[in-house]
Computed example of a mutant assay.
Amino acid sequence: MAAVRGGLLSLDEACSRYTLTVEEFLSWQTSIDQHGLAGLRTTQLQEYRKKQEYH
């Protein structure tokens, strides 16, 4: 994520390297921005999604 933001790695290169779609990468980036690294934990994502559904 930091390498893409810093211009060291393109979005396409990162997605290829880590076998991600652009949508997955951007979703991960949004989770980190909103919730920090804990936002990438599966259980944490599930909790955040539940909270968002109720709002």
Rank of each mutant, 00 (worst) to 15 (best):
G36Q: 06
L26G: 02
T21I: 03
L40H: 05
L11Q: 15
V22H: 01
T21Q: 00
Y18I: 00
E13D: 15
R5K: 15
Q34V: 07
Q29L: 10
K51Y: 04
H55F: 13
A2D: 13
V22K: 07
R17M: 07
L11D: 06
R41T: 02
R17Q: 14
L20F: 01
K50I: 11
K50E: 15
E13T: 08
R5A: 13
L37M: 07
Q44G: 03
S27P: 04
T43R: 10
A2G: 06
T30W: 15
L40D: 02
T21R: 00
S31E: 15
C15F: 06
L9M: 10
D33W: 05
F25M: 09
S27Y: 02
S10H: 01
Q29M: 13
S10G: 02
S31I: 00
A38I: 11
G39A: 05
L45H: 02
A14G: 01
K50F: 10
V22D: 02
Y54A: 13
Q52H: 12
L45P: 03
C15P: 00
Y54Q: 11
L8Y: 15
Y48G: 04
Y54L: 12
A38H: 11
C15K: 03
I32P: 00
D33C: 10
Q34Y: 06
H55T: 13
D33A: 14
A3F: 14
F25K: 00
R49I: 10
A2V: 08
R17D: 05
G7S: 11
V4N: 03
S27I: 03
R49V: 07
G7K: 13
L11N: 00
Q34C: 07
Q29G: 00
A2S: 13
T43A: 13
D12G: 05
V22M: 01
C15T: 10
Q52G: 12
S31G: 09
R41E: 11
Y18G: 00
Q34L: 13
G7I: 14
H55C: 07
G36W: 07
S10Q: 01
Q44C: 03
E13C: 09
A3G: 05
L26H: 06
A2K: 11
Q52I: 12
S31N: 10
T30E: 15
Q52L: 15
Q46Y: 08
L40S: 02
L26W: 00
L8A: 15
M1N: 01
A38E: 13
K51G: 06
H35Q: 07
S10M: 04
L11G: 02
A2I: 14
D33M: 08
T43S: 13
M1K: 12
M1F: 09
M1H: 14
T43N: 11
G36P: 05
D33S: 14
H35Y: 13
G39M: 10
G6H: 08
I32W: 09
Y48H: 08
H35E: 10
T43P: 03
L20E: 03
S10R: 09
G39C: 06
S27R: 04
T42S: 03
L11S: 01
C15A: 08
Q46F: 12
A14V: 06
K50Y: 11
